[in-house]
Computed example of a mutant assay.
Amino acid sequence: MNWFPGRLSVVGLTGSALVLTSCGAMADADEGAEAQSAQASETPAHEGWNFEGGDGVLDFGEVQGRLNGGGSSSQQRAMDHWLEIFAQTSSAEVTYSPVGSGDGRAGLLTGEYAFAGTDAVLDPNEVEQSQERCGPQGAFHLPTYVSPIAVAVNLEEVDELNLSPEVLADIFSGGIASWDDPRIAEHNEEDLPSTDITVIHRSDTSGTTENFTEYLEEAAYNWEWSSSGDWPADLTAEFGSGTTGVLEELARHDGGITYADAGQVGENALRASLAVGGDYTDPSAEAAAEALAASERSDGGPGNDMGFVLSRDTESSDAYPLVQVSYTVWCNQYDSEEEAQLAAAFATYLVSAEAQNAAADVAGSSPLSADLREEALDSIDRISW
């Protein structure tokens, strides 16, 4: 795959080297400083970069500077690993604060962060705000981390648990209070204990909450609340801050139930299977990828945006519809050449086969397909300064 001269030339993502050269060096020697200055705001951050076959390690050469990001806690495990590896392939410093999707998006829009991690796409108001922060084209989404959201349960001596969307809605709305309720038993061969159910939800504004409530809103006829990153205020329950917080709370409550990124749910918790198309589907990376393949693209973003509208009511039992696409959100235009080049370099690493496979190993996510990785590189190529 090749772009027009001066953009990225990709010989291969796996086993490649990235070499940076100055944007100014790409200009004609005959062009004066005035012409170069006039063109600076339209200069692609990737100008002069090339991928070449290497020894199997992505090398980001002389890229340097500091890049701060923040947002989704669900991708923290993968992000910690990515940051560690990227530090070995560049001279740059990249940080990430797992403050939650809502605070991450807000931080990008105010300039606190150069990129945000989010489990939900920007809303129309945020898209408009991003045009002030990120130039006329605003911000764009890259799918970075695709994972099932597990319905995690603390029930000792129970090996398997099946739930329908309607039963799940009744549990989280308080309509089912005990694990031996006949509505749960209808979906399970195994006898369940009479243990009281303790519902645990996120206390912070969370993309995981938005994905979970969106699933209930679309897949369960008896869920009365609109999807939101904030848990419904009139549903009283236990709570925790961030993915770590709800899972710590789950461990303290026998009979507890919560929702969290499947890759971060420990072995001591039970992951429920959900009723899909007349069968029950486990929260696996493969089933999450099937759900993404059945989904459509969102509208309203710039031409290089890669946001999705996820299909929650699929009838394919191969798909697990309680899935989240965790994005990194980037500016199409940054204030400086250094920031733009570093943003483009780190984004390129995140969507590489190396990074995606590493996330699958350490966090159980589903790697992006080769076609999505190729499209993501096209999107990154639009970053300018």
Rank of each mutant, 00 (worst) to 15 (best):
E156Y: 04
Y280V: 12
G32C: 07
D378L: 02
V63F: 13
A139S: 10
W231H: 05
S369E: 06
P44S: 11
D313F: 02
F308L: 13
A177Y: 00
R77D: 05
E296P: 00
P367Q: 07
G104C: 04
E374M: 08
L250G: 03
D381T: 14
S317I: 12
E62N: 15
W3C: 03
A291F: 05
E354I: 10
D191F: 00
Q356D: 08
R183D: 11
H253C: 14
S366G: 13
W385F: 14
E62K: 14
T209F: 01
S228H: 12
G56C: 10
F239M: 14
S226I: 10
T208D: 09
E34W: 10
A260P: 09
Y113L: 08
G71D: 11
D305Y: 04
G12N: 08
V351C: 03
A347D: 02
T43A: 04
L161S: 08
V19G: 02
D254S: 15
V265M: 00
S178W: 09
G70P: 04
V63K: 00
M1R: 06
A285M: 09
S101C: 11
E157T: 14
D335F: 12
A345Q: 05
Q75A: 12
Y280T: 03
A78I: 00
T244V: 15
A275E: 15
N357C: 01
E62F: 08
F140A: 08
E296D: 15
P193C: 04
V362C: 01
E47D: 01
V309F: 00
V329H: 12
W225Y: 15
Q341D: 08
A376T: 01
V94D: 01
A219S: 14
D80M: 01
V94Q: 01
T244E: 12
A370D: 14
F140Q: 03
F140N: 13
I85R: 15
